[in-house]
Simulated assay, not measured.
Amino acid sequence: MKRLFLAFLFTGSLATVAVAQSAQYTEAMTKQTSDLDSSSTFTQEALQQKANTFERIADAEKSQWLPYYYAAYMQVMQAFTLKDKSQIDPLADKAESNLDKAEALSPKNSEIACIRSLVATARLTVDPMTRGMKFGPEAAAQLEQAKSLNPENPRIYMLEGQSLLFTPEQWGGSKSKAKTTLELALEKFAAFKPESSIAPHWGETYTRKLLEQSQK
C-alpha cells in the first residue's frame, strides 16, 4: 500500500511539473508573439533578439514546433532588412535549419511552407538576375504546397499578393492582380481561427498596408 501511495504521489508530482512547464511555455510564447504585427518588431535589433529568444524556448521545449517556426520567421525577416547582401544566405541557412526542426515535429504544415517560401524569396534578393530562375519558382512552389495543405491559410494569399505587387509586369506582376489576391487574403483573415493563442496569427496588418500600395 505504501509503495502504491508513493507511486501515485510521484505520478502526481510529474503531472504538476508538466502543467507548470506548459504554463511557463505558453506564457513565454504569448509574450513573444503578441507584437508580431508591430512595426517596432521589424528592426535588426528586435528581430535578432526575438530570434534568439525563440531559439532558447525551442531548446527548452524540444517537442514543440512553434518556437523553431517563429525563430525561422524572425531570421528570414531579418534577412529582408539587411543592406549587406552577403549576410542574407547565412541567415537563410539558419532559418531553414529551424524549419527542418519544426517540420520534423509537425510535418505537412502549411505555415512552415509559407516561411520556406519567404526563405527562397530572401535568397533570390541576393542577386535577382542570376537567382530568379531557381528561387522564384521555388518560392511559388512552396506557396502551392501550403495551399494544398490548408487553402484557408490567409498568409498564403498575403505572400502571393506581395509577390504580385513587387514583381515587374514583364515577369507576371501586376497591381491589379495583387489587389485581387490581397482582398482574398483579408477575407481569409476574417474567417481564420488560429489553433491556439500562440499559433500563427500574424499578417493581417501588413496585408492591409500592401493593399493600400496596390491601389496607388
Rank of each mutant, 00 (worst) to 15 (best):
K31I: 11
Q215G: 04
K177D: 01
I112F: 04
V126D: 03
V119S: 03
S39D: 14
A79L: 05
S22F: 05
S40H: 11
S38L: 09
K94I: 11
S97I: 12
M158P: 07
L165V: 08
E183Q: 00
S148L: 08
A72T: 11
A60Q: 15
T167A: 07
L14Y: 00
A58R: 00
E138K: 14
A104Y: 00
T41R: 11
Q24M: 09
Q44I: 10
W171C: 02
T33N: 02
F5Q: 11
G132W: 12
L36P: 01
C114N: 14
K2H: 13
T41I: 03
A102L: 06
R116W: 10
V17S: 07
S13V: 13
E61D: 14
E183V: 00
R155V: 08
P90W: 03
G132L: 05
P67T: 05
L159Q: 15
S196G: 06
T11P: 00
L66F: 08
E111H: 14
V126N: 03
Y69H: 05
E183C: 01
E144Y: 06
Y68H: 15
K175G: 04
F135A: 10
Y69N: 00
E144K: 15
K62H: 05
Q48R: 13
K193A: 09
A102F: 01
T16W: 10
E160H: 06
A15H: 08
N150L: 08
E61H: 15
S106Y: 04
G172Y: 07
K101V: 04
C114I: 14
A79P: 02
M133K: 14
Q64T: 02
A18E: 07
I57P: 07
A92Y: 03
N52V: 10
L99E: 01
E152N: 15
F8V: 10
D100H: 08
R3D: 13
Q48H: 11
E55A: 15
S163P: 06
L210N: 01
Q213K: 15
R155F: 09
L143R: 10
S176R: 00
L91N: 04
G172N: 06
W65L: 08
G203R: 01
M129F: 13
R116F: 10
A71K: 11
T81N: 09
P90T: 08
P168M: 09
F10C: 13
T207Y: 04
F42Q: 04
T125P: 10
S163Y: 06
L14K: 05
L4K: 12
L159M: 15
P200C: 03
E144C: 07
F54P: 03
L9K: 01
K85H: 12
A140Y: 02
G12A: 09
T41Q: 07
F42R: 06
E45D: 14
I57M: 05
A7N: 04
L4G: 06
W202E: 14
E152G: 09
S63I: 07
T53M: 11
G161M: 01
M1K: 12
R208I: 12
F189Y: 13
Y69D: 01
R131C: 07
